[in-house]
Design a binder for these strands. Structure first.
Lengths: 138, 138
DNA sequence: CGTAATTGCGTTATGGTATAACGTGTGCCA
DNA sequence: TGGCACACGTTATACCATAACGCAATTACG
């Protein structure tokens, strides 16, 4: 019934509801937008959303987009269980769509920059802003 | 407008105050922290800070760190007049210090990733999280 | 000149994002 | 069976950012 319960088997009810809200959206959602969508399922307070999001991010099922203060479902199942070290997001400022990518070349460049200054890299936030191909052609 | 007209000498009073607050800080400052520091100079409302910050960011004298909701003075004067396309920040989660870097290799990797998907790149947010060399050694 | 347009500024009010603190219920298992 | 870990619900609060109004100073230019 819920594909993410099938994948992970162990999401709580609130986590599943939040996960479904994100999976069903083509664009990132803010925590408060999720809250509004889930009021009909009994959600009443932001913390119910934030607590679920914290776990989903921890599980690697959801990513937080820092430049939008919003959240997206992972498009790339291999993120599960990993820290967000190696993913980048292309965010279209016209349509709001987000494309998630993995690039060895970019990861290597980031790693090497960190090394150059003796910086212990734990996570990286890489968010490209611009216009996607579809919107350019339209 | 010639780029030299953007040097600090041509800033308005509020812009200079905000710029000085940021230049004098070793770590990024939030808008509200700046507000508190500038109350003794007559600042009363967040908008006074945000308006100055908008201009300073536009001039390339200040960068906004998306993953912190905070602002830093540019450490790299060549940013003046440029969009933020080519800069990355290494943010130490122990001491809060931020190191700004420019990396041709990283810029190229970002550009090439954008091209691969037909994405028109307008700006990029690259923020590394981890521990700086100084804190590691301590 | 004079006047319109622009820009910076101050203020009040409001909206959007995120967490603190406290208490309840449940399942586990030593 | 008592302690622990964890998810959950609720209220309150803190933090981040902008809307909308009006005024004053400066600039553009016919």
């Amino acid at each position: 019934m819920n594909k993410h319960e099938n994948l992970t088997g162990d999401l709580t009810k609130n986590q599943s509801l939040v996960m479904n809200a994100l999976s069903g959206s083509k664009t990132p959602l803010s925590a408060y937008t999720i809250l509004d969508e889930l009021r009909e399922y009994g959600f009443r307070a932001p913390l119910q959303v934030y607590r679920a999001l914290d776990k989903l991010v921890e599980f690697g099922l959801v990513h937080r987009l820092e430049s939008l203060n919003a959240f997206v479902a992972c498009q790339h199942p291999s993120c599960e269980g990993k820290k967000r070290e190696s993913v980048l997001f292309a965010i279209c400022e016209k349509c709001g769509n987000v494309q998630e990518m993995v690039s060895e070349r970019l990861i290597e460049a980031v790693r090497s920059n960190a090394e150059d200054i003796g910086f212990s890299l734990e996570a990286s936030v890489i968010e490209l802003r611009g216009v996607c191909q579809t919107c350019k052609e339209a």
